[in-house]
C-alpha cells in the first residue's frame, strides 16, 4: 500500500485547529467586534501606527504569520472534507488543490510581512 502524505497536512491542520481552539473565538471577538465597535477596547487599539509597529516587530510578524497560515491550513482541509461529505465528487487528488490554496495564502502573508519592513 502507498504511504499517504497526509501526516504533513494533518500536522498543519492540527496546529491550526489547536491555535484556533485556544485563541480563535477571542481573536475574532477582538478584531471583529470589540475594536470596530469600541466595545471593551478603544477603537484606536488597531490604529494604523499601532498595527504597523506590531507587523514590523519580529514577534508580531510571527504571530500574524502563524495565525493566518494555521487558520488557512486548518480551514481549507476541513472545507475539502465538507464538500466531499455533501456528495461532491472530489477524490483524494483534490485535497492537493485545497492544501495548495492554503499554502498560497500563507506565502502571500509571508511576502506582505517581508515588504512591510
Amino acid at each position: 500500500m502507498k504511504r499517504s502524505n497526509r501526516p504533513i497536512f494533518w500536522s498543519l491542520f492540527g496546529a491550526g485547529g489547536m491555535l484556533s481552539a485556544l485563541v480563535g473565538p477571542m481573536l475574532i471577538f477582538i478584531t471583529g467586534i470589540a475594536v470596530p465597535l469600541g466595545f471593551l477596547l478603544p477603537r484606536d487599539t488597531m490604529s494604523y501606527e499601532r498595527v504597523l509597529a506590531f507587523a514590523q516587530n519580529g514577534f508580531g510578524k510571527l504571530a500574524i504569520f502563524v495565525v493566518i497560515g494555521g487558520f488557512l491550513f486548518h480551514g481549507l482541509h476541513r472545507i475539502y472534507h465538507c464538500l466531499h461529505e455533501v456528495g461532491l465528487p472530489l477524490g483524494h487528488g483534490w485535497m492537493a488543490v485545497f492544501h495548495g490554496l492554503a499554502a498560497l495564502g500563507t506565502l502571500v502573508a509571508l511576502y506582505l510581512l517581508i515588504v512591510i519592513g
Partner: peptide, 14 residues
C-alpha cells in the same frame, strides 16, 4: 503500519 500509513488506513477518518 503499512496499512495504517495508507490513505485507506487511518487517514480516511475525520
Amino acid at each position: 503500519m503499512e496499512l495504517v500509513n495508507a490513505d485507506e488506513g487511518v487517514w480516511g477518518c475525520t
